[in-house]
Lab assay of single mutants.
Amino acid sequence: DETGKFLVLSLYDYQEKSPREVTMKKGDILTLLNSTNKDWWKVEVNGRQGFVPAAYVKFL
């Protein structure tokens, strides 16, 4: 199980638009929880879990 094993870097600021999403700032290091959807990845940032656009992050 690779859940929570990968870190990704936020390339852009992102403001959550729904309760299922999370806000991140450019340069944030996020824990990747799920990347099965090619468009939206589930991450943990600042103690919160939610989705961010996959195009806004990259693997470290």
Rank of each mutant, 00 (worst) to 15 (best):
L30K: 00
E2W: 08
E16L: 08
D1W: 13
W41L: 07
W41V: 09
S10L: 07
E44C: 11
M24V: 10
Q15V: 14
K42R: 10
T23V: 04
V52Y: 01
K26I: 07
K25V: 09
L11H: 03
R48S: 06
S35H: 11
Q15K: 12
Y56A: 10
V43I: 08
D13W: 04
I29K: 06
K58P: 01
G50K: 01
L9D: 00
E2V: 14
E21I: 05
E21L: 06
G4V: 13
N46W: 05
S35Q: 10
E2S: 14
I29F: 06
Y14T: 02
E44A: 09
L33F: 03
V43N: 00
N34V: 08
S35V: 09
A54W: 03
D28N: 06
L9A: 05
R48I: 08
E16D: 04
K5N: 11
Q49W: 07
T36E: 14
K58D: 08
G27T: 02
K5T: 12
V22W: 03
D1H: 15
N34I: 07
G4R: 15
D28R: 03
E21N: 05
S18P: 03
F59A: 11
K26G: 04
P53E: 02
P19D: 12
L32R: 01
T3L: 13
G50D: 00
K42A: 08
S35Y: 11
K58C: 15
G50M: 03
N37R: 09
L60T: 07
V52P: 01
T36K: 11
T36L: 09
V8F: 07
K26N: 03
V22C: 07
T31C: 12
G47W: 02
L7Q: 10
V52F: 02
T23A: 07
D39W: 15
V22L: 14
S35W: 15
M24A: 01
V52D: 00
T36W: 10
F6T: 14
V57D: 00
K17M: 12
K17S: 11
S10F: 06
V8E: 00
N34A: 09
R20A: 12
P53R: 05
V45G: 06
L60D: 04
Y12I: 11
R48D: 03
P19Y: 10
P19G: 09
G4K: 14
N37P: 03
V52N: 00
L60I: 14
K17T: 12
Q49P: 05
F59H: 09
E21G: 12
G47K: 04
N46D: 12
V22S: 01
F51M: 08
P53H: 03
D39R: 13
W40Y: 07
N37A: 08
V43G: 00
P19W: 12
K25G: 05
P19V: 09
D13S: 08
T36Y: 10
M24T: 04
